[in-house]
């Protein structure tokens, strides 16, 4: 299949790498040349690692032959378009409007949004809303086995069937979830972070203890280590998005401590300091 991916950031590049690893052709698009360059390097080094570790049987050139990185999307020979642009509703709404106008109804359109409702993203795509849904991949895409398939308002059963096939062809497990803020995974995970923040703030236990207890129960990382890994800012952004989209449901109220860290630039491992120090 020919899969167009819009946006060459971490997620877009990861989806493109996964697609070419699985035998598909990927057309990765981004208007920013520096971002395209970074994606090319990221994908090449990811593939090289996989080859060296014996996980990928083909040569690097063979995989890269199935990858094109361009500044604009093609007009034809497309089966799927997966949008992985920055998490801004207006931007994504414009992208889906344009895609819906450009492509015939046989081209499936998906958003990789992590928290914005699919029905909201396709409000301006009125030609064929039934072929638009969500495919939420997890970071790092080549390694994470799950994809949430999101059925938005008017998304057809045929879309869900096609999405299941695509996800399976990528070697991943698809679960069909409702179009709710945060979908399933980000929604279920919110208390892990928020109660951790609250209980430390209330003096129930220090964050090191909270992390140790959860890790001792089999969780790969306690909530504070996870937030530092994914980015304190990214985690806060998802929480805020869920909080706002649920009309300020108390369960998802962001915590001021996290906000303070973000304002100070303590974004986690990527900045050398988050809840923990990494210098």
């Amino acid at each position: 299949m020919n899969i167009v991916i819009i946006g060459s950031g971490t997620m877009g590049a990861g989806i493109a790498q996964t697609a070419i690893q699985s035998g598909h052709r990927a057309i990765l698009t981004d208007p920013d040349s520096a971002s395209r360059q970074r994606a090319q390097e990221r994908i090449s080094s990811g593939l090289q690692r996989g080859i060296e570790r014996g996980r990928l049987p083909e040569s690097l050139d063979s995989y890269l032959d199935r990858l094109s990185i361009k500044d604009a999307i093609p007009n034809s020979d497309v089966n799927w378009v997966i949008e992985a642009a920055p998490e801004r509703s207006e931007l994504k709404q414009k992208i889906f409007h344009d895609l819906d106008e450009r492509y015939p109804s046989t081209v499936w359109l998906a958003s990789n949004t992590s928290s914005i409702a699919i029905s909201k993203l396709k409000v301006n795509a009125s030609r064929h809303p039934e072929r638009i849904g969500g495919l939420h991949f997890f970071n790092p895409v080549p390694r994470m086995a799950l994809v949430e398939i999101i059925r938005g308002m008017d998304t057809s059963d045929e879309y869900v069937t096609a999405a299941r096939k695509l996800v399976a062809s990528l070697g991943k497990t698809g679960i069909v979830v409702p179009d709710r803020p945060g979908f399933l995974v980000n929604r279920v995970a919110r208390p892990y972070y928020l109660e951790g923040l609250r209980m430390v703030d209330e003096g129930v236990a220090p964050m090191e203890t909270v992390d140790q207890v959860m890790e001792g129960a089999g969780f790969p990382m306690g909530p504070f280590r996870v937030m530092d890994l994914v980015g304190v800012d990214v985690n806060l952004s998802v929480t805020k998005s869920v909080y706002e989209q649920t009309y300020y449901d108390e369960r998802y109220r962001p915590h001021g401590w996290q906000e303070q860290l973000v304002e100070r630039g303590y974004w986690g491992r990527k900045s050398g300091r988050g809840f923990y120090r990494y210098e």
Partner: peptide, 12 residues
């Protein structure tokens, strides 16, 4: 699907 989501998406 719920349990797969938490195990595969969150590594719980």
């Amino acid at each position: 699907e719920i349990d797969q989501g938490a195990r595969l998406g969150l590594n719980y």
